[in-house]
Computed example of a mutant assay.
Amino acid sequence: MNAHDNTLGGGAHGHDDHGHHEDEGFHATFGGYMTGFVLAVLLTAVPFWLVMANVFDKSRTTALVLLVCAAVQIVVHMIYFLHMNFKSEGGWTMLALIFTIVLVVIALSGSLWVMFHLDQNMMPAMHDTKNLP
């Protein structure tokens, strides 16, 4: 074996060493799953209590808090249960997720925009019936 064989993979740092380190990625532990479970339960129970107890006077405030809790719960599920981070699979899973989120936001905001304008422009008779005796 010569020096050329050692540098091309025949030596100690050959094809078996792909540069993986123990600290890359997320390793599932019981404590990690329990943390995710407790956070998921809290992020479900608190919004349920907010709605059932009618804590806020305005429904918009309640809806905003529900949306924030839902977004945080999605992140909790992705981190603790799906083990997604920027280190796993070279960051491609996170980039695919970000792209998906952008597409979902565009689709939802566009749908809400269309529905709002349809309500305003296509159904004037429905708005006039509110003042009837």
Rank of each mutant, 00 (worst) to 15 (best):
G32P: 02
F116P: 00
L95T: 07
L66G: 01
I101S: 09
D23S: 09
I98G: 00
L95E: 07
I74F: 05
H21L: 10
L95P: 02
N2K: 10
V75L: 04
K87T: 02
M34K: 02
G11Y: 05
M122S: 11
G19F: 03
E89S: 12
V46F: 06
D128E: 14
A125L: 04
F81G: 03
V104L: 14
M126R: 07
L39P: 03
T35M: 13
Q73W: 01
M126K: 11
R60M: 14
L108T: 09
T7N: 12
I101H: 12
G10Y: 03
H127E: 14
V65F: 10
R60E: 14
V102C: 02
T93N: 15
V38E: 06
D5S: 12
L64D: 04
I98Y: 06
W49N: 04
V105Q: 02
H20S: 08
M123L: 08
V68R: 06
L42P: 02
F56C: 07
F48Y: 02
V65D: 04
G19N: 02
D16I: 10
D5Y: 03
F99Q: 01
N54Q: 14
H18P: 00
A12K: 14
E22R: 05
N2A: 12
V38D: 03
M122Q: 09
F26I: 14
L82M: 14
P47N: 05
D17N: 08
V114G: 00
V114M: 06
V65S: 09
T100P: 00
H15K: 09
W92F: 10
L132D: 10
V76C: 01
T7R: 15
H18F: 11
H127L: 05
C69Y: 03
E22T: 12
P133G: 11
G110H: 04
H83R: 13
H77G: 12
D23E: 06
G31F: 10
H18Q: 14
G36W: 01
K87D: 06
F48P: 01
S109F: 11
F99S: 08
K58N: 15
M34W: 00
L103P: 00
Q120G: 09
G10W: 04
M122W: 14
H4E: 13
A63R: 08
